[in-house]
Amino acid sequence: MSSDMAKADNKEAFQLSESKPTGAASIHIGNLAKTFDTAEGTEEVFSDINIDIEPGTFVCLLGKSGSGKSTMLNIVSDVLEPTEGRVRFEYPSDEEDVTLGHVFQDPRLLPWNTCVGNIEYVHENNPDYTNELARRSLDLVGLSDHYDKYPTQLSGGQRQRVGIARALSTDPGVLLMDEPFSNLDEITAENLRDELLDIWSQLNKTVFFITHDMTEAIQLCDRILMLGQGRIYADLENPLDRPRRLDSDAFLKFRQKAVDKFHSIEE
């Protein structure tokens, strides 16, 4: 599968039209706070979060269960309103609105639609959509032989590929990924991580990736943000060159440093 992806030269494939160049957007999270009203009063999830992410960066947000990762992603995805602050997306040289591509933990495919149909579904407001775009997106994730298959005919890894293809097909400036590989077996997850890096290097997208897996974070990201106790308590640049070998000394050394940092705050 990996070789399928590598040989696909799709750098131009994701220009939806000639006039709109594919690009990566920057993310600016300013003074962000979220509180929930509970029976006991208001509960603060996080406050005063300030993050700026450069276009084309692969960022991981790491946190333990209940740290507010999903809340953060939901606010960034515009599914949830923040209590304070705002999230802005910008193309470096363009005034245009930034499209967000969403990849979920469970691929969330319509079981009654084929792979192509699932991609077509999210292009309601795209007058330039053709099934050719859906097919090209599926080619990109190595599903060239599965255009007209239904999700029930695919393996878990293939379904998640469709989820990734669907997000990429919208030509997003930012790809938001919510633990996309955590429900897959390790071998499949490993393959998909490699393929995601391939695609990322081809398409130059900003990726905002939520995970609780340190090895995954270090393998994938340029930058690791750690969320806990209602704040970003660590912001690490990943010094490792790509491709990254999981068993290299440098990898293990940086991983240890990151793990120590991760556990540096109380539960």
Partner: peptide, 12 residues
Amino acid sequence: DLINMSRSFNIS
């Protein structure tokens, strides 16, 4: 989840 997915992609 499918409703949330649709909302994320701004489906009417």
